[in-house]
């Protein structure tokens, strides 16, 4: 008989700029090595995953990361009492810090998580990327954290056009100081400081999702090229590709950093065929179901690593398989919305 795990999953916002939760859950439900009961952990009452009962068995509201780790821990203790969680897979950049901080306490409760260490999490932050590149001998664009609008006048080493990026999300390409000031104000109002100014690398963008075991081994790596992009720059369609250099770069990233957990590399290939790492997202991306579909079930492998099982690295994947996302309207009774909004559980 297969084992059954109770797994908490965040990122149920399957919207036009989707959280990875539903894609992760699809991978877990298709896992060959275990069965699952999925406990959704949601920040807002209208996250679509809450109402997707084929995917999510039960959902609980959890407090925003900004309220601090104490409240989050209290809430997770309550959820654990009800559901006997074996594992939580956090999927939002903004919540990862809290979950990494709580990992020992959660472990004591019997809840596993499989995330990068705090050191790994911090050193790949956008504002630390130049040092990261130097330390691990990886190409990264020049970038600089900026804490005030006036600092935009002191960017001697970065020419226009450049990117103005938020700490966690959002990016604008700007061609002059007026545009830069406007982007600075808009993004900092939403995501706080610092704002990161990053050199614009001309080229073709690629993404790689993968999984590191924390000992320097690549368990999974699947490169993808976006084919259809939303106005927020999110992939609405993409295709799996085979690029030896990209896979070698991913192996180097994992072996050098001993990366633990899921990740997404955002890469730019310039005209000299050099790959630059634009961003390292320290969690599974929303398009991870493509990896599942081409033969590398990253969510399943992550769970097995977290539970201390032996996981053999994937050695192949199908090239030339596409994912195409779609929007779908569910009809939901107001009673369900009422229940998650007032009781905080559904």
């Amino acid at each position: 008989m297969k084992k059954k795990y109770n797994i908490g999953v965040t990122g149920l916002n399957a919207i036009d700029s989707p959280g990875p939760g539903i894609a992760v859950i699809r991978g877990l439900r298709e896992a060959a090595s275990f069965d699952v009961r999925i406990i959704g952990l949601a920040y807002e009452s209208l996250e679509p995953g809450i109402y997707m009962h084929d995917h999510v068995d039960k959902t609980y509201h959890i407090p925003y990361p900004s309220t601090g780790t104490d409240l989050l821990l209290q809430r997770l203790e309550y959820v654990h009492q009800q559901e006997k969680l074996d594992l939580i897979i956090p999927n939002f950049d903004a919540e990862l810090y809290s979950f990494i901080k709580l990992s020992d306490q959660l472990n004591k409760l019997g809840i596993k998580i499989f995330l990068p260490t705090l050191k790994q999490f911090e050193e790949r932050q956008k504002f630390n990327l130049p040092d990261f590149g130097k330390k691990y001998d990886l190409f990264v664009p020049r970038s600089k954290p900026v804490f005030a609008v006036n600092d935009l006048y002191k960017l001697d080493e970065i020419d226009f056009p450049y990117l103005v990026k938020g700490k966690y999300y959002d990016a604008s390409i700007v061609y002059n100081t007026d545009q830069a000031k406007s982007a600075f104000n808009k993004i900092s109002a939403k995501w706080g400081l610092p704002i990161i100014i990053q050199e614009f690398i001309h080229g073709t963008e690629y993404n790689v999702t993968g999984l590191g075991d924390g000992k320097g081994n690549t368990i999974s790596a699947v490169p993808m090229r976006k084919q259809y992009i939303t106005d927020k720059g999110k992939a609405w369609g993409g295709i799996s590709i085979a690029d030896k250099d990209m896979l070698e770069l991913t192996d180097k990233f994992i072996s050098q950093t001993k990366w633990k957990g899921g990740f997404e590399l955002e890469l730019m290939k310039n005209s000299k065929n050099e790959f630059y790492i634009l961003e390292i997202n320290p969690r599974i991306p929303a398009w991870v179901y493509l990896a599942v579909g081409v033969g590398q079930n990253i969510p399943e492998a992550l769970v097995n690593l977290a539970m201390g099982e032996e996981v053999k690295p994937f050695t192949r994947f199908d090239v030339g398989k596409m994912f195409i996302r779609y929007a779908y309207d569910m009809i939901v009774d107001i009673k369900e919305f009422e229940q998650i909004s007032t009781v905080g559980e559904l």
Binding site: T204, Y206, M224, R225, Q227, G238, I239, S240, I241, A242, D243, V319, G320
Partner: peptide, 19 residues
């Protein structure tokens, strides 16, 4: 070597995903 074309003339480059 890895670039392929179908009978209908659809050409796919697996190295970069272009068709």
């Amino acid at each position: 070597p890895n670039v392929a074309v179908s009978e209908s003339g659809f050409l796919f480059n697996p190295a970069n995903g272009e068709s």
